[in-house]
Design a binder for these strands. Sequence first.
DNA 1: CTTAGTCAAGGGGTA
DNA 2: TACCCCTTGACTAAG
Length: 302
Amino acid sequence: MRIGYPCINRSLSCSSNKTFRLKSYSEEYLKQTVRGNLECLLKILKFNLAHSIFFFRITSDLVPFASHPINTFDWQEFFRSDFELIGDFILKNRMRISMHPDQFTLINSIREEIFERSRLELKYHAEVLDLMNLDFSAKVQIHVGGAYSDKPKSLERFVKRFGDLESSIRRRIVIENDDKLYDAGDCLKINAETRIPVLFDVFHHRLCNKTQLSDDYFERLVQTWDSSKDGLPMVDYSSQKPGGLAMQHADRLDLEDFDMFLKSTERFDFDVMLEIKDKEKSALKAIEWLANEKRFRAFLEA
DNA sequence: CTTAGTCAAGGGGTA
DNA sequence: TACCCCTTGACTAAG
């Protein structure tokens, strides 16, 4: 079991998700921004290593406007050696990487042009991981998408469109249950047709299903990951902000709730992404909590 | 310097 | 059809 956090490290003064407005686009500004983002990414990974954090989500803003038509710059070639250097660091230290394109990436959209834009956005994400020479346990996680007032049809459209993607994208994609439309059961249906691994989001499950997570159910999700190529299952964990609205993520890790989740999934090993506002602080807290946990120790001692 | 409005991109829900 | 919500940090123009 690895513990991770997404995109931003608040203890360091740099950011790897610096971007700018479309209006101020220039090739020079892009180069300068990407260079800074890559430098910071390596700093974050070094921080993580020093603190036994072996799982990290790389921001989608690493290369601003990467899939936008305005960007005709060959950033892949220009930064090739920088990507390789970061990839070497990740591989050498047995780190795990994920990426999560945002809500505009919808491969099941009714509109063909939105699918096409989403395809380019996914291509960008897959390229980042390819340029780092990471194996296929580094994943790009997306949601199923919209319902378009016909959920079964929209689910089928996802399957069809997934088949239309190039294999360099397909081998990276995992699907995540969302908070109100497509639950993990829907993701399992898609898995049955496509073999796409299902990334389980604990918090979304609570919001969408309002039921207790059963051992059998969790086992079926875990089994969608082919350990020989996909690596351990990935799980997103968060809890609700106390006193906040239903969908708000907590500001800091609720150890009691986290521990309950760990106990209920004791039989399984997986990597946990903590989607919590205070980022690396929660990861450090979780790691401290897990110091004597069997699954966590197993990774450190391997 | 501080603050409030805005940013490439979608979709769901309500009235 | 119009409008608000989701959620997010940070850019950027205005004060």
